[in-house]
Simulated assay, not measured.
Amino acid sequence: MNAVVKRVARSTPAVDSARLGRLAIASLHAELALAPKPGLVTPFDRGSHHDMDAGTFLRSLFALRHYFIAVADAGAGAAPFQTLRRHGIAAEISMLHATAGINTHRGAIFSLGLLVAASAACWGRAGRVAAAEQVCQEVRRWAPELADAPLDANSPGQRARARHGVQGVREQAAAGYPLLREVALPALRHALASGLPREAAMCQTLMQLIACVDDLNLLHRGGADGLRWAQRQARTFLDAGGTFAPDWQVHLRRIGDGFVMRRLSPGGSADLLACSLFLLQQEQA
């Protein structure tokens, strides 16, 4: 008698939107907790900011906790870009309500939100987690809609972008985030693989980003001269060994003093750092 072979259909694992949402918030919290960071808010100081502190950021993160789950659900369901945009607009309103009008995470709502949706889309299509670089490239699917979406021409970042003729996060997203694929992710992976603690690896990655990003926050606060000064400081730090050097924290604090004196804050680079950490963490099933 021939044995009857029963074939059991394998179901595709459902996208864990809650996990992706938690990873997004955890990545933003890890960036906030990181210290020392030149000009940026930490749990210990305000950096170059007089209108916000760590408590402001924590209130913002609490307000955003449902947003990243919502965009993950939208990405998994192949929702149109306008759905993602509506979630982002609602998240920005929640953020501003929680912070009394202070912009703490507008850049992260945009970039990290798109990457969370892209991660969920890749997972939903393939039934497994995707490589970080693949997630970045997935964002390119929304390039036409990104080009047509309205801009707030009066925002500080957009004014700096227009004045100095540089690309912003919209162009980065439409191109599949080359700064993440070519700078942040390789730097973070190398630092972690070399045995650096996560905090040191993140500081190394942040300085790699500051060294090469046309950061709109730096341009807004310091103009072209401020941006170039910040980039030179980052390159000097990296040339001295970066966080692989035994005295790196002393060196980075000294650089941070210069940022504060000039009121410079590399917020765009900080957003990309949080995005790179999320992208590596979402690779782990």
Results as ranks from 00 to 15, higher is better:
100 A>R: 12
171 E>V: 01
162 A>H: 09
55 G>Q: 08
283 E>K: 12
224 A>H: 11
48 S>C: 04
40 L>W: 01
199 E>N: 07
223 G>F: 06
102 I>Y: 02
118 A>G: 02
172 Q>V: 03
13 P>D: 11
207 M>A: 06
40 L>R: 01
189 R>A: 11
45 D>I: 08
227 L>F: 00
278 F>T: 09
2 N>Y: 05
212 C>H: 11
257 D>H: 09
254 R>I: 01
51 D>M: 07
99 T>Q: 07
223 G>N: 08
19 R>I: 09
144 P>H: 03
178 P>A: 01
285 A>Y: 07
253 R>C: 15
248 W>G: 01
106 R>Q: 08
26 A>G: 07
255 I>A: 05
20 L>P: 00
137 Q>E: 15
202 M>C: 12
176 G>N: 09
219 L>S: 02
30 A>G: 01
237 F>P: 03
89 I>V: 15
175 A>Q: 13
263 R>G: 00
39 G>P: 09
163 R>L: 15
273 L>N: 00
48 S>V: 04
240 A>V: 00
282 Q>C: 15
146 L>V: 06
56 T>L: 04
90 A>E: 15
34 L>A: 05
285 A>K: 10
246 P>T: 11
71 V>I: 13
170 R>G: 05
273 L>T: 01
25 I>C: 14
56 T>R: 08
171 E>R: 02
142 W>Q: 00
199 E>A: 14
233 Q>K: 05
232 R>M: 13
138 E>S: 13
187 A>E: 09
84 L>W: 07
269 S>K: 03
198 R>L: 14
216 L>Y: 12
115 L>N: 02
168 G>A: 10
188 L>D: 07
16 D>H: 08
252 L>A: 12
149 A>F: 14
196 L>H: 05
128 R>F: 07
228 R>Q: 14
109 I>L: 10
24 A>V: 09
183 V>H: 13
164 H>N: 04
171 E>P: 02
33 A>Q: 12
188 L>E: 06
95 M>R: 10
25 I>R: 14
57 F>S: 08
1 M>K: 02
42 T>G: 15
215 D>C: 08
147 A>Y: 05
80 P>G: 09
148 D>W: 08
173 A>E: 08
9 A>F: 14
215 D>P: 08
78 A>F: 06
4 V>K: 10
41 V>Y: 12
90 A>F: 12
172 Q>C: 04
106 R>W: 03
82 Q>M: 13
242 G>H: 05
188 L>A: 10
158 Q>M: 14
197 P>F: 13
184 A>P: 00
263 R>T: 02
74 A>N: 01
235 R>H: 04
150 P>K: 05
271 D>S: 07
63 A>W: 04
124 G>D: 04
29 H>S: 13
107 G>W: 10
42 T>E: 14
138 E>G: 11
195 G>S: 11
29 H>L: 15
205 T>H: 06
114 L>H: 10
273 L>E: 00
273 L>R: 00
236 T>K: 08
60 S>V: 12
195 G>P: 08
233 Q>R: 12
55 G>H: 05
90 A>K: 13
89 I>G: 01
85 R>M: 15
75 G>I: 06
53 D>N: 14
276 S>G: 06
48 S>Y: 03
235 R>D: 01
16 D>S: 13
191 A>H: 03
253 R>S: 15
104 T>D: 07
111 S>Y: 02
36 P>I: 03
120 A>D: 11
125 R>A: 14
179 L>C: 13
